[in-house]
Structure formats: C-alpha cells, structure tokens
Design a protein around this nucleic acid. Sequence first.
DNA 1: AATGAATGAGTATTCATTCAT
DNA 2: AATGAATGAATACTCATTCAT
Lengths: 204, 204, 204, 204
Amino acid sequence: MGIEIASTVKDPERIRERREQIIQASVELFTQKGFHKTTTREIARASGLSNGALYEYVKSKEDVLYLVCRHIHQEIHERLADSLSSHERAVERLRHAVASFLSVIRDMEDEVLLIYQESKSLPHHYLREVLQNEQAITDIFVQLLQDGLQDKSIQLSAEDIPLVAHDVIVLGQLWAFRRWALRDMEFSEFVSQQTEMILRACRP
Amino acid sequence: MGIEIASTVKDPERIRERREQIIQASVELFTQKGFHKTTTREIARASGLSNGALYEYVKSKEDVLYLVCRHIHQEIHERLADSLSSHERAVERLRHAVASFLSVIRDMEDEVLLIYQESKSLPHHYLREVLQNEQAITDIFVQLLQDGLQDKSIQLSAEDIPLVAHDVIVLGQLWAFRRWALRDMEFSEFVSQQTEMILRACRP
Amino acid sequence: MGIEIASTVKDPERIRERREQIIQASVELFTQKGFHKTTTREIARASGLSNGALYEYVKSKEDVLYLVCRHIHQEIHERLADSLSSHERAVERLRHAVASFLSVIRDMEDEVLLIYQESKSLPHHYLREVLQNEQAITDIFVQLLQDGLQDKSIQLSAEDIPLVAHDVIVLGQLWAFRRWALRDMEFSEFVSQQTEMILRACRP
Amino acid sequence: MGIEIASTVKDPERIRERREQIIQASVELFTQKGFHKTTTREIARASGLSNGALYEYVKSKEDVLYLVCRHIHQEIHERLADSLSSHERAVERLRHAVASFLSVIRDMEDEVLLIYQESKSLPHHYLREVLQNEQAITDIFVQLLQDGLQDKSIQLSAEDIPLVAHDVIVLGQLWAFRRWALRDMEFSEFVSQQTEMILRACRP
DNA sequence: AATGAATGAGTATTCATTCAT
DNA sequence: AATGAATGAATACTCATTCAT
C-alpha cells in the first residue's frame, strides 16, 4: 500500500522494523523542529541507526517525510474506520464519526499540523500519494453522507456532498491548526459546537 | 504598525519602496519554492537589489518572511474591511462579508497557503505578531456576529461566536488549502455552499 | 614626517583635524576590539564622519592602522624625549629616562599592545616605517648609553649597547604585554626592580 | 591536558593524527598570513582534508588557533623541561636553562611571534588557558631561582623572583619579536649578552 | 548489514570600498 | 566636501549523501 521505497536490505521484516523506528523518531523530530531544521544525522541517531544504515532503509530525506506522512494518514484512517458505528440511521453514524474524528485530531494535533506544513516539501509523486490518502479519509465522510441520502436521514443534494465532507475535515482540523486561538476552549465544547454545525448542514 | 524592522538606510520613503520590491519578489519565490528552498541571493536578484543591498533593508531572511506574512495579512484585512457593506441587518452584512472574504481567498490562494506553511519558520516574536494579524481578520467576523446578536438577525449563544468566526475563516480558506480536491468545482458553487453552511449556523 | 597619505581634500588643516578625529576613534576601537574586528563603518561613525567622508582622508583601512601606529609612536617618543633630564652623569640621565619610559608604558599599555599585535597587518612599506619609529625610541637609550660610555658613568663594551637598549625597551614593555601575570604588583615596585636590572647591566 | 575539544569522530587515534596535520598546516599558514587572513578552506586544503572533514575534528576556526597555541607552548615547555641539567648549583642550572630557552626561541621564532600576535583572537576561555601555559613556562625559571635562593648560589629577595622570571622570558623572546632590529647580531652573541644580563640580576 | 569518516556543494551574512548626488 | 546607498566578493560553517572497510 502506497509507494514502494527501495532498500538495499533484503529481509522485509527487518525493513519493516527499522522503518518503524525511523518513523517514530522522525515524527517526534519533525513536529518539534520542522522538516528542514531536522538533519538526517539527527534522524539516524534518534532512530538508533548509524548515518550509513539510515540510507539502507531509505534513499533520501524526502523518503522519510513520505513515510511519516503516510504513517500519520494510516493511523488517522485506521482509527476513524475502526470507530465507525453501526447505528441504523446514517445521520447517527455520522454524528459518531464526527466525534471520533475530532478525538483523533485532538490526539494527533502535531501530526495533523505536520502534514499541512511539510507536505509541500515532498517530491511530486509522493505528494500526489499523500493527497490521495487525505482524500481517502475525506471519503469516509462522503460515504456516510451518501448513506444518509439513501436512508433519508440526511437531506442534501448529492452534488453538495463532496464539499460538505471537506468541510467536516477542516472544521475538525481547525482544532489543530488554530490551536493558538482556542487556548481557553474545552475540547468537549469544541466537539458539541462543531457537531452541531455539521449536522445543521444535513438538515432540510 | 507591526514590528519595526531595523534598516541601515535613512530615507523612509526609499525603505518603503525597496521593501515593497522585496515583498513582491519574495511572495512569488516563497509560493513557488518555499521559504527554505529560496536563497537570499534569489530574493535579492528578484528584488532588483544586490546581495548587499538586500541586507540594508532587512537584517535576516526571517525578516523577509515576516514582511511577507504581514503584507499578506494587511492586504486580506484591508480588502475585507473595505468591502463591509452597510445593510441594515447584520445577517446581510455577514452574508456579504463572507462573499467578499471568499473572493479574497480565491485571489490570494497562494498567499494564504504560504502563511499556513511557512509561518512556523518565523522567530517566536514575529510568529506572535502574525497570529495576532490572523486573529484580527477573524475578529471582523466576530464583530458581525455580535452585531447580529444585537439586532436579532442572528441567533447564537454569545459564547459560541468565537468558534463560529474561526469556522468561517477555515471554511473559506478551504478553497486555498484543499484546492487539489476541488479542481472540478466552480467558485460560485463553492461560495453558495459555504455561505449556506455558515448562515445555517446563525439560525435558530 | 613619516609616509605621506593621499587625500582628495585640499585644505591641509582640515585634513589634520579630521585625521586627528580618525586616530582618536580608532585607537579606542582597535584597542578594544582589535583591528580586524573593527569595521570601517565603526571607524567612520566614531570619528564623526560619514562612510564616504572617511575615504576622503584615508585610502584604506590599513592607512588608518598606520596613522594609529605612527601616532602612538610619536606620543611615546615625544613624552620620552621631553622628559630627558640634564644630570651631569649619563647614568643618572639613564635612570631618569627609564623611569619616564616606564611611566609612559603604564599610561599607554593598550597602545603598546596594539602595536605589537596589529602592526603585522600593515602593508610592507608601512611596517618598515613603523619599525623605524620603534627603533627611534630605542635609539634614545642607545644615545644615553653611549653618553655613559663617554663620561665613564656606564661600563659596557660599545658593541653591547644596541642590545642593551632593546633590553631596556622590552623590560619596560613587559608591563604592557604580560600585564595578566602582574596583577598583584605595584607599579612602583615594577619600576624599582626593572631599573635595578638595567643599571646592573651598566656596571663593571 | 588543556581544554577538551569536541569531535564528531570517535577513534581517538585518528583524531590525534588529523589534528596533528591541522596544527602543522595552520602554524605554517598563521605565521605566514596571520590568523584572520587565513581561511578555513586553506587550512583544510593544507591539512590534506576536505572542507567538511576539517569540521569533524574541530568545531570552529578558533579551535584551530587554540590547538596551535597549545601545541607551541607544549613544545617549548617540553624542550625546556627536557634540557634542565643537574648541576649541583642552581645558578649553573639556571645558566643552562637560559641557554636552552634561547635556543628554543631561536628555533621557534615564528611560533613565538604567532602567540603574541594572534592569541588575542581567542575566545576568553581559551585565552585563559593559553596564558596559563605561558605562565607554566615562566614557572620553570621561578623554580630555578627559588632553588638558587635555597642553595645560596643566587642572591635575590624572594619577592623579586616572579618578575625576574618574566624578565628572563622577555629577554629571550626579544630575539623573536625584535628580530628586525637584530639582523646583524650573531645568535651566540645574543646568548652571551642576555645570559650575562640575567646572571647579573642574581648576584648580590 | 552496518559503520562512521569523508565529501563538497551550498548559503546567510558581512564589509571594504565606490560613486551618484 | 560630504553623504549614504550600493556593490559584490569573500567566508565560516552545515549537511545530505556516499563509500571504503
């Protein structure tokens, strides 16, 4: 899944493990210092690898950024997908999904910000992939909205759905990238307001 | 207004002109290549200045970034403020303000993105200032919402207003930073959907 | 006296005045920060001149250093020459000269150090001149020693005189360039010890 | 011994070797062109290292200067200490030490000058160390003079000893930093005169 | 597979000097 | 005579990447 990254190492399991280390270390570093101000030496050291070993699992610093972005998206996607409820009415499933999504955003504030701020440094082919992953998350809400259309628990014209789905995403991400403006707000308050905002869009 | 940036040049008019050149050139460069990948040489050359002259108007590369961010915010703020209508009912003034804001975002897509992606590279004291400017823009909508509360054309609990104002901002900026997902959408379509979304939040 | 330094300014009196300012400012700056770490801008500013005006009275930064070195030597030479006493016996005149010389060194510690540490940065033709000035000061002691030979108040073989004169100089300058080692020593103590050292060399 | 200088290289033996190269090259360069006019590129190239490799063995240009000064002092100290004779009477040991010291100064003219002229460019903590090393050399003579006091072969009041020791040093260094004035003098002549001067100070 | 030393291109910034006004 | 803006060469230091061992 995603773009294959070349490695000089044969054992796939070892590759998996080492890249796991690299990703853990890099998320930490990138969120703290930013991609450009993090050196590959720092990445190697924090990953428990030597300078040279790093380049056996990755061909460039940009590869690391891609791995990190992909990993973050995977985690968000997975957590969101896992939380999907099985209420009968789609609108209820949506309400739950929004709540879950907001929780994920809260837990992964720094990571969400990281993707927004650093993904522009990705080579084009990686960026495309990353945007697809972002879309895949959005599509979860697209699906829920379509379900709602079907079961009539949501009132929207079909062509409005894509944008509404994006709206859901950014209304959630707001918690991450306007955090500086929301210092005093309780997360629960945020959840109820944003949920209300979104659900209003789904009523006639 | 804003943080004073030292210059070795005495003539204030000349400083204004040259910094104007620097800003124009840098917006272009930063939006195309990003702040880190742009060199000061490129900035100087594109500004029509020599390497040395650049540093007579600015003390560091970060100064340039701050000037750029401030400039962008000023332009957005000004255009938005100028467009405020004088309808009797606040809700109408809000509707117009949203429309204007979205136009501004459309015109300044790259600049909006620039601030989101590069402002993290600012030294702390500059960043604070930049965030204040972002807040100042948000406050325009805070004011409109409060007006609406007053004249009863908007129904919201007072404590919800700040977040709604931020919602307005990100629902607008969405056009800029999720542009890749909206390739097929007409701007007018975007405007009407987002306006609807926002106004729904203001009704009982 | 000394090497003529070109100037684009005609009025010799004005040149004298301005260079006086330049020298005063530069002695201060060079002793504090060293020649290399002092910029011509600083020199100009501290001299009360504009950047450009500085270069009307001097052709290069090295010119300034030369002016400074010459000025220091002139002052030392003058103060030493002025203090020469008229005792009948040369050995007494020598004793007084040594005392005067040590006073001058004490008063001009920083300047003496400056010449030792920075004169190597002078272009060759200036350096030669500066060394001649240093020699001229030494020659005052050469003369006194020769006088002593003549009047028999000093016992030395004639060929030893030049080196003894240099010894006098460095035994005096020691106060300046090993100051860090003499923190606890009274100047008067220094004077009496060094005088004794020198006079012993002049006895049979 | 001395201040530890950080290196990114692990193998201590390699560090020793490379720094040796760096020191050799830098003594040459610094004595010829001075510290400020020598570039780090020149240092690297003359050391047989790449630009980057230089900075694996040293963190700054000032580090190189410190290494050079320390090396010079070490060599002087070692050669002087090694030459100490075992004559019964301290005054004889002193005479020999002076002769050895003067030989060392002659062999290391440029290096002695280098320390005098460039050590002011050292960061404070390095300068302190360098002055301590200079003092350590002086202390060898302090010790000899004290021995002489003990065995009565030298007549001095105890409190005069420190300054006399410094006198010995500068009377020796004179050969290095007033070389321009001593072009015609035989070194042997210099030795006998300075030795005589010093020994006279030690007699009643 | 791993190490870590080596490479060298790249970059922000400074500053002596010039020159149009 | 004076100003001060402009120039552009120069330079210490960094860091992604390679490669011998």
